[in-house]
Design a protein around this nucleic acid. Sequence first.
DNA 1: ACAATAAATGAACGTTGTTCAATATCGCCT
DNA 2: AGGCGATATTGAACAACGTTCATTTATTGT
Lengths: 200, 200
Amino acid sequence: MARRNDHSREEIREMALEAAEQLVSEQGPGAFSARKVAGAIGYTVGTLYLVFDNLDDLILQMNARTLDRLHGRMLQARIQCRNSREALLRLGETYIRFADEDPHRWEMIFGHRTAEGEKTPEWFQQKVARMFALVEAVMQPLAKRRSAPEIAQAARALWGGVHGICILALTDKLGVAGVQSVQDLAQSLINNYLEGFTRQ
Amino acid sequence: MARRNDHSREEIREMALEAAEQLVSEQGPGAFSARKVAGAIGYTVGTLYLVFDNLDDLILQMNARTLDRLHGRMLQARIQCRNSREALLRLGETYIRFADEDPHRWEMIFGHRTAEGEKTPEWFQQKVARMFALVEAVMQPLAKRRSAPEIAQAARALWGGVHGICILALTDKLGVAGVQSVQDLAQSLINNYLEGFTRQ
DNA sequence: ACAATAAATGAACGTTGTTCAATATCGCCT
DNA sequence: AGGCGATATTGAACAACGTTCATTTATTGT
């Protein structure tokens, strides 16, 4: 038995999330199970339930970390750009590259089904919202005469679009091969959408 | 025991798919299980495995039927339109309405993860491809000076986009309420993309 | 040293997908 | 009509799953 107080609750939480991430990342969502995560950190199932409400909770917290990392990368990408148009394209590129580099971890965020009655908690929703807010902020200077709600809508339409391309491509439903093709699709979507949105 | 030859293999197949669809539709993907499907048609688990390779096979065939229905609706929608632009918008509307009317069944198509090593069979891929081909056909007359590969790419970018809006909205990740808002997003995407794609 | 306290366990339960020997029923032939 | 061979159907069995919680174990305070 792992010695008591070997690790604090917070440490166990961290270890479990780390192990879960590695498991999903390397062996796919199917390889993920409570016993495997527990085993990987030298504890048993029961311990996990002292730290997480249930497996859904663990997955949600794991996804939150992934989402944080994605958001960080997107923030970073934006800084390196001179103008808004370039920034938007780079955001798209970053999003797709992130998904491609670790498809399993990314799929976990958007593929995981929350149990029937349950709804995604507020704090998680906000992490997703934060991403749209970022897109919104970048789009703002591109269409100055548009109202705030209009821009909010445009950001959602466009980013929903980028997301769709990404998910269909990664699950081999688009009939395109290679990351570059996916990047091209996304750039095409962004460029053309922007063309229409900014012009009229 | 169900009397022998009560139903042909083909009949059992049909009954099982019907029952599975109803189960998923009414109680969500979580309620779906081999024993439940078998029970619903008055047989036992074993019988299902005489008709389907495994549960993934059953799900795949169920999804194929859903995809066929969706394709049918999209074909029908196109016919009722005068010009291509209107047709494309109607296609988007039809797609989203279909997903909204039976979200569980629709989610099953795109949310279902095929087991790690396995890849989606050719015949299924083609049913998805058929949908893109339809979009392509509708876009053709809208940009006559574009090459065929360009149009193929555009169709995938655009429809990937519509799909993304649809899936994010249905899983409550877009922060929009009501089907109409989703429809608006999709129309915005299509209109603006088309604006850019046809103009330059 | 010992009792009180709390961390960690792991057996237990119900469910899952999948398999396959056993069983029940049919159609056919004498 | 009766029985037999063929086969459609069963359901017990298996391993693995999420989840719970009485039991066990290590640590701490006195």
